[in-house]
Each structure stands twice: as structure tokens, then as C-alpha cells.
């Protein structure tokens, strides 16, 4: 495994300066994905192509890691997958709750692996630099999938519906309603008149909570998009900065080193952001589904958006 990472870094070191976000149009990476062609009104953009490539890679990588079947005594690939899954489960279990975890966990895993590999794939050479020129306009084939707001918004929307589905499945419609609008006051501690009045208060709080829940879609998508897009811009700009050095006589070889530290940074960001997305989704699910067992308490009393 360490060897794998090493070789990955070596690839980054020697190839990264060639990634060349030299798409040529404007300064920085364009904020919207560019359509290469369209099929029946559905435009195929560079970020979608990248999404497909990485999706196929994800599936085949998993198949490859688990080749020869899943066994009780794991092969090397299987133990790698298992160690990641086991680590995630250890973290997610107290957040989501023991009861809801088996239902929710495959979805969380899919989010983690999908976003992680999309983010890491976004660091590969060729992003925004390989493409064709149509009508004098450069159209790249590849763009980090998550640096397109469509992709992250789609992820967040799917996450929102998955959240609703899991909440209804694990807590029931009544449980979901109680969690948002329900009167959570202790009946024995206050007078009945006060208790009835609190119904309206909690309903109003629930309405605000609804807005906050809808905001989660925006915040989830923009967090991931902002990080990836910002990172992409950062790399692009650092490459642009290095082209200045390249024209100088003595230090021109140093120009290759300038984007390098930022690749390490983006490597870190890629891992952390996939983890954050998964963790936030599990927190949202845990806020509704995690009752009864011990883990539920540490989520209370905070507004996670």
C-alpha cells in the first residue's frame, strides 16, 4: 500500500507541471463546465465525461480489489477495502446510531468512495488541457467532476432525498415530524397551559428548521464545489505563476516545483472533503434516526448546516 502511495506521489511530482490548465480562455478555470457535444438535448460536458471515467474506474477498482471473491480470510485488496470500510464504520456508528447504520451505511460508503475518487481523479494530469478546438474555441475533455456545480448539486440533491428516505424508514413519518415540529418539552415540568403554548413555538421552530434543512442542500453542494473548484483554480494559477519563472534563464527549472506543494494540499483537501460530505450526511441522518442509544447526545444542541 505504501508503495502504491509512493508511486502515486512520484507521478504527481513528475507529471503535475504538465497538467497545464492551459485551456487558454480567460484567466483561471471557467466557472461552468463546457459542453463538448450533446445527445438528444442532453449536453455532455467535460465534467460529465470525467465523472463517467472515474465512475467506471471506481467500479472496476473495487472489482479488481475484490477479485477472486470475498472471503473470510481476506486477500490484500479485500483487506484494503475492509480497513477503509471498518474505519468509516467506527466513525459513523456513534453518529448514525447502531439501529440505522446497516440501512444507511452502504449509501454513505458509496458517497465516500465516489467523491474521494472523483476528487483524486481531479488531480490527475490532463484536466482542462486535453481537448479539441471547435469553432476556434477550446473544449477540454476532462474537468474534475466536482468542480462543476451540477455534479455537486446532484450529489446533494440525491443526498437530500436519501436523507428523507432513511429518516422515514428508520424513524417513520411520525418520528420525522416529531423531530422537526414536535413539542419536545417535558410535560411534567411545566404547566399544561404553557405546554400547549409551546406547541406553537415548536411549530414555528420547525418551520425555521425546514429552511435550515433545505439550506443543507446548498451548503453541501457549495462546500464540495467550492473546495474542488477553488483547488482547481489554485493549481491553475500556480501553473500560470510558474510560466513566469520558466522564461527566466537560471531558475527556469524551479518553475516545475511551484505547483507541487499545492498538489499535496489538494490531495489532503480531496480526502477531507469526501469525508466531510459523508460525515455531514451521516450527522443529518443521525439527528433524526439516532435515539435511544448513547451516541445521540453529542449531536444535540447544534445547528449543522
Amino acid at each position: 500500500m505504501a508503495k502504491l502511495w509512493n508511486s502515486f506521489f512520484v507521478v504527481l511530482v513528475f507529471v503535475s507541471p504538465c497538467t497545464a490548465h492551459c485551456s487558454g480562455h480567460g484567466d483561471g478555470v471557467s466557472s461552468a463546465a463546457t459542453a463538448i457535444f450533446s445527445i438528444g438535448g442532453f449536453p455532455v460536458t467535460d465534467s460529465i465525461v470525467m465523472g463517467w471515467v472515474i465512475s467506471a474506474f471506481t467500479i472496476f477498482a473495487l472489482k479488481f480489489a475484490l477479485r477472486g471473491g470475498v472471503k473470510t480470510i481476506p486477500s490484500t485488496g479485500q483487506s484494503v477495502v475492509e480497513s477503509i470500510i471498518g474505519g468509516l464504520r467506527e466513525i459513523m456508528e456513534p453518529v448514525v446510531g447502531r439501529k440505522a447504520l446497516p440501512v444507511v451505511f452502504p449509501c454513505l460508503l458509496a458517497y465516500f468512495f465516489f467523491i474521494l475518487l472523483q476528487n483524486l481523479g481531479g488531480l490527475l494530469p490532463g484536466m482542462g488541457s486535453i481537448g479539441i478546438r471547435i469553432d476556434g474555441e477550446f473544449r477540454p475533455f476532462f474537468r474534475p467532476s466536482n468542480s462543476d456545480l451540477n455534479a455537486t448539486l446532484a450529489l446533494a440533491l440525491v443526498a437530500f432525498f436519501a436523507w428523507a428516505y432513511f429518516c422515514v424508514k428508520c424513524a417513520g413519518v411520525g418520528g420525522l415530524y416529531y423531530e422537526i415540529f414536535g413539542n419536545k418539552a417535558e410535560k411534567s415540568e411545566i404547566s399544561s397551559l404553557m405546554y400547549c403554548a409551546l406547541f406553537f413555538v415548536f411549530f414555528a421552530v420547525g418551520l425555521i428548521e425546514c429552511i435550515s434543512i433545505l439550506c443543507r442542500v446548498i451548503s453541501l453542494s457549495f462546500r464540495l464545489f467550492g473546495n474542488t473548484f477553488g483547488g482547481e483554480n489554485l493549481l491553475h494559477n500556480m501553473y500560470g505563476f510558474s510560466t513566469i519563472l520558466k522564461n527566466m534563464p537560471v531558475v527556469n527549472y524551479l518553475s516545475y516545483l511551484i505547483p507541487l506543494p499545492f498538489y499535496f494540499l489538494e490531495f489532503l483537501v480531496a480526502i477531507i472533503q469526501s469525508f466531510v460530505f459523508t460525515l455531514l450526511l451521516s450527522v443529518y441522518i443521525g439527528l433524526v434516526c439516532n435515539h435511544g442509544d448513547h451516541g445521540g447526545e453529542f449531536l444535540k444542541g447544534e445547528e449543522y448546516v
Binding site: 449536453p43 460529465i48 464545489f225
Partner: peptide, 13 residues
């Protein structure tokens, strides 16, 4: 500005 298109959203989803 960010090129949101419901076609793309559906495809990505």
C-alpha cells in the same frame, strides 16, 4: 454563472 442545467443535474444524479 455556474452553468446549472437540469439536464446535467439529472445525468449526474
Amino acid at each position: 454563472r455556474f452553468g446549472i442545467d437540469w439536464h446535467l443535474l439529472v445525468v449526474q444524479s
